[in-house]
């Protein structure tokens, strides 16, 4: 809210216009969709640093299967979805079987997946960027689902904003209104206590790694249909940005607590700052400074919240 007011005052040329609103909602929506998955996983006590590379992998895989293997784009997308979710499954399985920090495991898979995507793409095409997917069969269908826009007051709002709202709604519903949600909280708050109460913590963690992979795939499809192709570097740093959005939204780094509505606000703040800085005419380099400060303050606030409730006993 403060952030919004700040830019509402200082970024008078355009920030408050409907075009300005659209511009930051669009940025927020992509981060917001990722952050729903990332936050649920964080609440269960794990990180997924591989999602950025999964976006690159997914978008390249869809594009290659469509253009090089002449598949209809929807089929290529479904095949890619299966592969992407399988990678998420492998991430999760490695984490729960080894008991090692997911931070390290998924840092590894971040490099493995990114490296493979670049190497294989170069091997097949000799390039790192591929475009022209819009001439393939099934593209129009995919485009209409993932990247069309809805005209409100003469401005085209991308459909990703509405997908974002749906993700937030479903995430909120699952976390707060279902049994699974209670298990996610408990898994992140105390593995040992949860195990004693019979909660299938391994299944929950692996499923949530698959969910973050799904979110990465979803963003990949949006990007492929928006940019008419793929770049092996797509999704770079998205893993950090989505974690930042989740933390600004109040998710505890140590797991056990978080709110999907908070995460939505976190993503919104991200979009407002990113676009607001442009509208305010400030050099965009300051954006990173601003986000860093926001992140550290959020972690400090979240930490004191946790301390308040955990007494030694």
């Amino acid at each position: 809210m403060f952030v919004w007011l700040f830019f509402a005052i200082f970024a008078h040329n355009g920030f408050l216009s409907i075009y300005g609103v659209k511009s930051y909602l669009q940025v927020s929506s992509e981060i917001g969709i990722l952050a729903v998955g990332v936050a649920l996983l964080m609440i269960a006590g794990e990180f997924d640093l591989s999602i950025g590379s999964l976006i690159g992998f997914s978008s390249m895989s869809i594009t290659l299967l469509t253009i090089e293997a002449n598949m209809p784009m929807p089929l290529a997308s479904v095949l890619t979805l299966i592969m992407t979710i399988f990678i998420g499954y492998c991430n999760g399985l490695t984490v729960v079987k080894s008991g090692l920090p997911s931070f390290i495991i998924t840092l590894g898979s971040l490099f493995i997946v990114r490296g493979l995507t670049i190497a294989v793409t170069k091997l097949i095409t000799g390039r790192t960027q591929i475009s022209g997917i819009d001439e393939s069969s099934g593209y129009d269908f995919m485009h209409s689902i993932f990247s069309s826009s809805v005209k409100i007051a003469d401005v085209n709002f991308p459909v990703s904003i509405f997908w974002w709202i749906l993700f937030v709604f479903l995430g909120y519903f699952m976390l707060n209104q279902t049994q699974i949600g209670n298990w996610i909280f408990a898994t992140g708050a105390s593995k040992e206590s949860s195990k004693l109460m019979g909660i299938p913590i391994r299944k929950i963690k692996v499923s949530l790694f698959m969910l973050t992979a799904f979110c990465a795939w979803f963003i990949a499809v949006i990007q492929v249909t928006t940019f008419n192709g793929a770049d092996v570097l797509r999704g770079e740093q998205k893993e950090f940005i989505s974690i930042i959005a989740a933390v600004i939204g109040g998710t505890l780094l140590t797991g056990g607590y978080g709110s999907i509505i908070g995460v939505m606000i976190g993503a919104l703040i991200f979009g407002i700052v990113k676009q607001g800085i442009i509208f305010a005419g400030i050099d965009a380099d300051w954006f990173q400074v601003f986000m860093g400060v926001m992140l550290v303050s959020a972690v400090l606030v979240n930490g004191s919240f946790k301390k308040k409730y955990i007494h030694e006993f």
Binding site: A186, A189, S190, S193, L196, Y257, Y309, I310, H311
Partner: peptide
């Protein structure tokens, strides 16, 4: 159990 009876932040 002594320490694991309940989860404080829930």
């Amino acid at each position: 159990y002594q320490n694991l009876a309940i989860i404080p932040i829930m």
